[in-house]
Design a protein around this nucleic acid. Structure first.
Length: 211
DNA sequence: ATCCCGAGGG
DNA sequence: CCCTCTGGAT
């Protein structure tokens, strides 16, 4: 996709929903990090429903670690994968205490060393907390990037690197979420709704059937 | 490649 | 009822 088209692509997404309602609202790095870990393979709605109770009981790494997996589980039962996630979050909180003075590290490798934190989660946190230029690549962003021609790549790392180069700096804060929304509601995996897509005319896909 | 695991939608 | 879902670890 040509630079001019890329700019227009994001200009339209920005115009459609400047501040996405479904973005996670947490400011505090710790609660944001935990919320992002919990959101893996779960809908926004379940995370939003479950987290208030969890963060009331354990707003800090110290209290979260003290709660332990057994204490955390019942608070996040309505999220899928709750057993794994409770275990991860407890371990993660303990690691923050042991290795990072109870603070969320501003460092990709340190983040990814935490239990339950992979590349995508680390990128979301780096971007949301510190405004780093990372643009997280999940399944939606991967598909949209490849289909549209915005950022083609065989691996999420490649797609992320290309997005980092191509997305105008002014929009990096929200680019991840805009692409997710586009993928979730319009650029569907099985049957993309090209006729109602705001960037169809800029897209390389043109109603093909793969990727 | 497979498991985790409930919620929500078709 | 059957399928998918804003990953990560093994």
């Amino acid at each position: 996709m040509k630079p001019g088209a890329v700019h227009e692509f994001f200009r339209r997404l920005a115009a459609r929903e400047p501040q996405p309602k479904t973005e996670l609202v947490f400011r505090d790095p710790f609660t944001l990090l935990v919320a992002v870990v919990l959101s893996a393979q779960a809908t926004d709605a379940s995370v939003n429903r479950a987290t208030p109770a969890l963060f009331k009981a354990a707003p800090t790494p110290r209290k979260m670690a003290a709660l332990g997996p057994e204490g955390i589980e019942p608070l996040i039962k309505t999220i899928g994968l709750y057993r794994t996630k409770a275990k991860n979050v407890a371990k993660l909180a303990q690691a923050l205490l042991d290795n990072h003075g109870g603070e969320v590290p501003h460092d990709r490798d340190a983040l990814q060393a935490l239990q339950g934190v992979g590349r995508k989660t680390a990128s979301v946190v780096l971007n949301a907390v510190w405004g780093d230029p990372e643009i997280a690549v999940d399944t939606h962003v991967f598909r949209v990037g490849n289909r549209t021609g915005l950022a083609k790549g065989k691996t999420p790392e490649e797609v992320e690197r290309k997005l980092g180069k191509v997305v105008p700096a002014e929009w990096k804060r929200h680019a991840h979420h805009w692409l997710i929304l586009l993928g979730r509601y319009t650029c569907l995996a099985r049957k993309p709704k090209c006729p109602e897509c705001p960037v169809a005319d800029l897209c390389a896909f043109k109603g093909k059937t793969t990727v």
